[in-house]
Nucleic acid binder design. Sequence first.
RNA 1: CGGGGAGUAGUUCAGUUGGCUAGAACGCUACUUUUGGGAAGUAGAGGUCGCAGGUUCGAGUCCUGUUUCCCCGACCA
Length: 475
Amino acid sequence: MNGLPSMSENFGEWYQQVILRAGLADYGPVKGTMIFKGYGYTLWKNVQKYLGEMIEKDGVEDVYFPMFIPQSYLSKEKEHVEGFAPEVAVVTHAGGEKLEEPLVIRPTSETIMYKTFANWIQSYRDLPLKINQWANVVRWEKRTTLFMRTSEFLWQEGHTAHATKESADADVFEALHRYDDFLRTYMAIPSIKGYKTSGEKFAGADYTTTLEVLLRSNKALQIGTSHQLGQNFAKAFDVKFVDENNQQQYAWQTSWGFSTRSLGGMIGVHGDDKGLQLPPRMAAVQIVIIPIFKTPEGAAKIKDMADKLIEKGKSVGIRMQADWSENTAGWKFNEWELRGVPLRIEIGERELAEEKLKVVRRVDGSSVVLQYANDIHKQLQELLDESQAMLFRRAEEFLNEHTRQVNSEAELVQALDEGMGFVVFFFNDDKKQADILQEKYKITPRVIPLATENEIGKDIFTGKEGKLTYFAKAY
RNA sequence: CGGGGAGUAGUUCAGUUGGCUAGAACGCUACUUUUGGGAAGUAGAGGUCGCAGGUUCGAGUCCUGUUUCCCCGACCA
């Protein structure tokens, strides 16, 4: 074995070690900070590329706002400041002097952006306004985990302003579905889309939507969120416009974000005891070539073949590399499995002689032998696509097998005992009852799915009207 | 932020009641033999013992502070 802790027995240890050993990241010197190494940062670059393309295609313009926010800005929206005050980092000194007004390092950019929106927006003709920025934000978390919760993290935050509530609502769901599309298509992650309960919504929002994912630790992780901010911020920051009837109106606003936490989700959803498992569309290296040779002449021939494959791969958009390190073949097999590369090609004397390639899938360890031919890359691409689909299917099965609807507290207890991750029941969105459930079973309300939004049933505790709500332990 | 554990070579760790020049394994470097599931030999390099202060003739070891990581809890996008 590779010396990794077992994922099923000790997820926390496994998670940390797989990240460090696969070379995704290191710890930074300041509490809760992390260093993205090349192998890990490439994953984020792929998020920026693919999700970025989707956002731009929907007519959202990329911008960049400063990271320093005057403290007074943050205080303007009451719920917002109460929500974020405990976790902001504040700059009090700069240039060797104490600052007149302390500067908050952005925990999110609503306040600084909307102060500016007030100037940008005058007429209904200026709406809708849709912007996005890729940035780092800082939230001083008490308990941190690589990728999933770090003091400083990277994300994109989209912000839009609209003339009507309906237009803003539509944008909230457009963003949510875009995230879902990205998660499915690129990260091979199935999620539960829906609303946050009132106790879990964004500070300052009318309502918050979310995508909840189930990790293999059986804990839920929120990946991506989209908020209807109503006119709350517009009123606080005076974002007003004149409508068609020459009436002053407050704008309706939304914000939505997707962060490096998603990479933690990807690791936690697809990994196994052998290590990481990267979906082909996200992987920095999609195919690794392991040469196996006995003589320098053999090595040279294999190198010719490998170079050609890699070169051609580059031209058709398959990310390949060969491992010519002096480690033994067995060592390399284990190493690249730990690093999560979707496909491995073994080229030895046998393959050379028969003009074949042995291709091994990371997803299930199975192998196929391909005849070396002109359309070899097409076949490789098909294998990559297959792996991508298989990962999604596997994750979906896991999600289904670990989700159960219950109709009483006894059933709930039983479901948790039997290893369910999500327990689903009619719930009245009562804060007190949620607190009791957290106290007794460590579960919190994660999401009210869009899919069953209109089903009304009796809350299994109070008998009041409630909606189907997913509960789970949160990561 | 509360409770617990830890920080000594790149990594994992040993280091006894304070005592001589701080150790091992793996990894790393060079050479040789190897390469189809984590190879072997020989030689070598590598340490301000997390950081700061204190006690002492003498501190990896004792004391104080501080910082980082892990686990549990509280808080939370």
